[in-house]
Design a protein around this nucleic acid. Structure first.
Lengths: 340, 340
DNA sequence: ATGAAAGCGCTAACAG
DNA sequence: CTGTTAGCGCTTTCAT
């Protein structure tokens, strides 16, 4: 059983033409049952593998997509990847990944390389910075979906998937308030990421609604070169006057750092200070105490993103253009655990 | 600036032949500087993208590789992926990923699909179970590297990368012993995974060397359907007589569960019971208390795996066959933190 | 129902 | 230094 690498060789074995083999393999056209059997048999015994590269060349694009991920930092991306991968597999697609390490130059290089590979589309958790590359893609008619990270201006112009980050911030803060917390600090994320600004807005609004004016002292921003992120900041603020009695971390990963600092200060959670996060990455439940958090449906986000991307791809094939952008907002869950 | 999709169109624009354009693009052959300029100019202004699919078809395989990952469960895989991705990018390759969710059927399907895509090779963290598929690949001359998960029999037959798991188990246990712990329980991993058996062997040998006969009571095995893994087991053993004074978790993820159980029992770590893990995933440092662990160089493992895979690919191109297998053992570090 | 031929975009002899 | 030709494996008219 030597290496058979082409439809043509199968054809010769069966005494038919390559087109016939192609037809039985794709089942698109009628073939006499007898020849069909014969071909199938040859395919089976030789272990023939259809060459997807050749198919892609003919088709003009590959049944592959690219997933762009900024980092593995806060552990939300593996779960998104998982969802993407599931749907891709179900639909005969394969996913490339690119971890950009939060560098736009890496992301740009990846777009280039991926487009040369004629991927059918992109699922993007973009590095922080300029979005013009993404608009350029869209203008050129490249199917793409932004997950989680996008700007307000993108709504209506690009396809997006996320939770309602404003609500998430609002709900978390309100929950803390209702639990009787008065001085709630917020650990903000990068202000270049709109999702964090939204979460802040929700926080501020919840506070005002409770007739508390947000205290600038309690609005914590990560230092640019922040090795340990909020660690030092938390220590400082807790040692000062008017220390907060709760922290709203705009991401679980930030909550972990905060809890670390609190533990090191021998401050009890939640008796002295409550902590709430957003994400619900897997390990949140294993923190001490287990972290109360707003759960994002991460794997589902990946699934929906891939599903939507495939819709775009198919729509474009039929209509020649991308469908109007759709902005999907997924529901979230407040998971009350022991840190509040 | 209309869409230019082929070298041929560039050629026409410049009044040269396609081969000339190919030559300047690949810089493999001499071209008159003047024509070179002209072509480059045309390429630049048209935004021409060389079609990698066509190149792959010509070459016979694609400059892509496939990374097979069983799950995102214990968080070691994202870091491996990162290393793979880095080297791939440096070397003009792109990586597909497949998350098999620990199901061999998914893995098998992925091998098929990937081979149809003519990937140049595989980096494999295999699902638990039959390895015959992998041997079949090797026999067919497919470049591949196993990372972390492999059997003793694979050594000398397949390319592998891992730490010395026996030593890791030995060192962890010895460390606990030297810290004065007497009754050290071990949380074993799936016995189908040799790396866990090795870690166990190291544990047992360290114990014997200290003239302690391993107590079967203290050898903890995860129940097959273990939702919460070791959670219940730890609770039970701690409540019984002769409770252990230390836990050696054969993976950080297991240590997290153990610590959770201990906290819930109000048992103090490390005063009452010490805990040590293996892996050093990012969050280990944020546990309460921070987890002492044997650090695997995960990103480096990914880098080395990709590097080795590329070596295999190149070797095979030159010699027609795979190089003799190499088994790479990477050094690890004992990171002493507060849980011991 | 099937075959012949052309072509997807590129590279690699082979000529000149 | 450059052009011509053939072919990588497959699909797709267009005939028959």
């Amino acid at each position: 059983m030597e290496q058979i690498n082409s439809i043509k060789e199968i054809a010769q074995m069966c005494g038919v033409s390559a087109s016939t083999v192609s037809r039985v393999l794709n089942g698109k056209s009628y073939v006499r049952e007898e020849t069909r059997q014969k071909v199938m048999e040859a395919v089976r015994t030789t272990g023939f593998r259809p060459n997807m590269i050749a198919k892609s060349l003919k088709r003009g694009y590959a049944r592959t997509i690219c997933l762009m991920v900024p980092s593995y930092g806060n552990m939300i991306f593996p779960e998104i990847m998982r969802g993407v991968n599931q749907v891709a597999r179900e639909r005969g697609y394969t996913a490339f990944f690119n971890i950009t390490d939060e560098k736009m130059e890496n992301e740009a290089a990846a777009y280039d390389q991926m487009r040369n590979l004629r991927v059918a589309g992109f699922i993007i958790c973009s590095a922080i910075g300029d979005e013009s590359l993404i608009y350029q893609l869209r203008e050129e008619g490249v199917p793409l979906v932004l997950v989680n990270r996008f700007q307000k201006e993108d709504v209506g112009r690009l396809d997006t998937i996320a939770i309602d980050n404003y609500r998430a911030g609002y709900v978390s803060t309100q929950f803390l308030l209702r639990a009787g917390r008065k001085r709630i600090a917020i650990a903000c994320g990068d202000p270049e990421l709109d999702l964090y600004n939204e979460r802040y807005r929700g926080y501020a609004d919840a506070l005002r609604e409770a007739e508390i004016e947000p205290d600038p002292q309690l609005v914590l921003r990560e230092p640019p070169e922040g090795q340990d992120g909020f660690y030092d900041i938390v220590k400082r603020i807790m040692l000062g006057e008017d220390a907060p009695d709760a922290f709203f971390a705009t991401a679980d990963s930030k909550a972990f750092v905060i809890m670390r600092a609190l533990h090191d200060l021998k401050i009890r959670i939640p008796q002295d200070v409550a902590v709430i996060g957003i994400d619900n990455v897997e390990l949140s439940a294993y923190m001490e105490p287990p972290l109360t958090t707003v759960a994002q449906p991460l794997t589902r986000m990946g699934r929906e993103a891939m599903t939507r991307l495939l819709y775009q791809i198919e729509y474009k094939k039929e209509n020649g253009i991308l469908p109007p952008p759709e902005n999907i907002t997924l529901p979230f869950d407040l998971l009350v655990r022991k840190s509040t």
